[in-house]
């Protein structure tokens, strides 16, 4: 599981699982917060390359991390999201706080 987290400079890279639901999201938030708090990482990049399913739990993970890092000027990015996941992010207006990149 820890393999899914990697630090590059001041960026925490999080490889999102194939299915992002409540069951999976609890551990993602917990581990990401450890990096943010203990190592003082400023920005978070969520990589959706292998993600095929996401419900509102994924939205909660993103907003929760955003709240933690934006206070210190950090940014949240979403990369490799397919059209479905992009649509899910847009419905919630997350494109206003997350930079969605190709």
């Amino acid at each position: 599981m820890e393999d899914n987290f990697k630090v590059i400079d001041n960026y925490l890279m999080v490889r999102m699982p194939e299915e992002v639901d409540h069951h999976k999201s609890v551990y993602i938030s917990k581990i990401a917060d450890e990096y943010i708090m203990k190592e003082g990482i400023g920005n978070v990049v969520f990589d959706f390359e292998t993600t095929r399913f996401m419900d509102s739990s994924g939205i909660g993970v993103i907003i929760g991390r955003y709240k933690k890092i934006s206070y210190f000027g950090g940014k949240v990015f979403a990369i490799n999201a397919d059209t479905r996941i992009k649509r899910t992010l847009m419905i919630c207006g997350l494109h206003k706080i997350v930079e969605i990149m190709e």
Binding site: S29, D55, S56, S57, I59, T88
Partner: peptide, 14 residues
């Protein structure tokens, strides 16, 4: 507190 976003019913509706 549980990282919920309040979008569950909105998604069901959508």
């Amino acid at each position: 507190d549980m990282d919920r976003s309040g979008m569950g019913f909105a998604f069901m509706e959508a």
